[in-house]
Design a protein around this nucleic acid. Sequence first.
DNA 1: AGGGTTAGTTCAGAAAGCAGACTTACACAG
DNA 2: CTGTGTAAGTCTGCTTTCTGAACTAACCCT
Lengths: 159, 159
Amino acid sequence: MRWSEIDTIPCPVAQAMSAIGDTWSMLILRDALRGATKFDEFQRATGASRAIVADRLSHLVEHGVFERSQYENHPPRFEYRLTKRGRDLQPVLMMLSHWSETHLGKSPAGKPLRLSGRRHTTCDHNFTPVITCSHCGDPATPDTITYDVPRHLTAKKAT
Amino acid sequence: MRWSEIDTIPCPVAQAMSAIGDTWSMLILRDALRGATKFDEFQRATGASRAIVADRLSHLVEHGVFERSQYENHPPRFEYRLTKRGRDLQPVLMMLSHWSETHLGKSPAGKPLRLSGRRHTTCDHNFTPVITCSHCGDPATPDTITYDVPRHLTAKKAT
DNA sequence: AGGGTTAGTTCAGAAAGCAGACTTACACAG
DNA sequence: CTGTGTAAGTCTGCTTTCTGAACTAACCCT
């Protein structure tokens, strides 16, 4: 299977990866969530080559994550702004970042990651993100969640 | 910058991508969280080539996401089991999946994703994941969160 | 003896990624 | 009016990675 075909897999994760899962997109999204909007900002912040940034940005625009709009006419200049779809990736990035801080931050490689003190303005305290159930509000941990896994994945071997 | 160098970027997201962010790892993790443990299970479920699966699995073992253990001696056979570090990626995958279901599921392309009815066994209701603050328990939405962004990203231009 | 299973490795050709130069069009300095 | 700078890319030639298919190896069952 080729990477360009993964959008044919009927699975939410595969679909998501097809849209935002290529190698540099997450870093572009990270920078967008921090406020970057211009081509060169993305290029500098990610360190990816210009061709890659151009390619990924247009891919993300195609998938409705960014909106490309001209903010200057005469030398045509564009900015990339996150759509709602794009802004809604913030929780994904936050959980990823939290995982990384928890598990990779104290790596023995001697590169202490700078923890980006996450603060909840509602209560004005530093916090860690906790996933809860939209129905009862209690934490939704892996062992308290079941899935109706699509049939085609269970038919052959029910683990 | 080459992709193989992104682990030098002092940012949790970049570190995470270095560990699990290449193109097929997420799909491998998805399958592992569904119970897959064997090489061929990963190969079949992801559809990636055998070389890629071998490469990614050993990469993930290196990064402490999987543990490789021999479960049969005579023809040496191995299984890959998620470590705690690996299992802790479940929330990340869940948020990603949730995003995908919300934003890509009803794509006009006519491929209705099968929603994998997420159920909270504690309250026995279907639910959607909500990120809350570990301190006060209230929802932690992007607009109620502030970050102490690392200096090297703000020094040049404070947006 | 022949075929199946599992966990890979190897190979050559194809695709993708890379750095850096180039382009276009304006703005400001001297 | 010539030169330098900025912004948003595109282009080029080289390097790296990915792919599909075959191959290995050691056991099992028939």
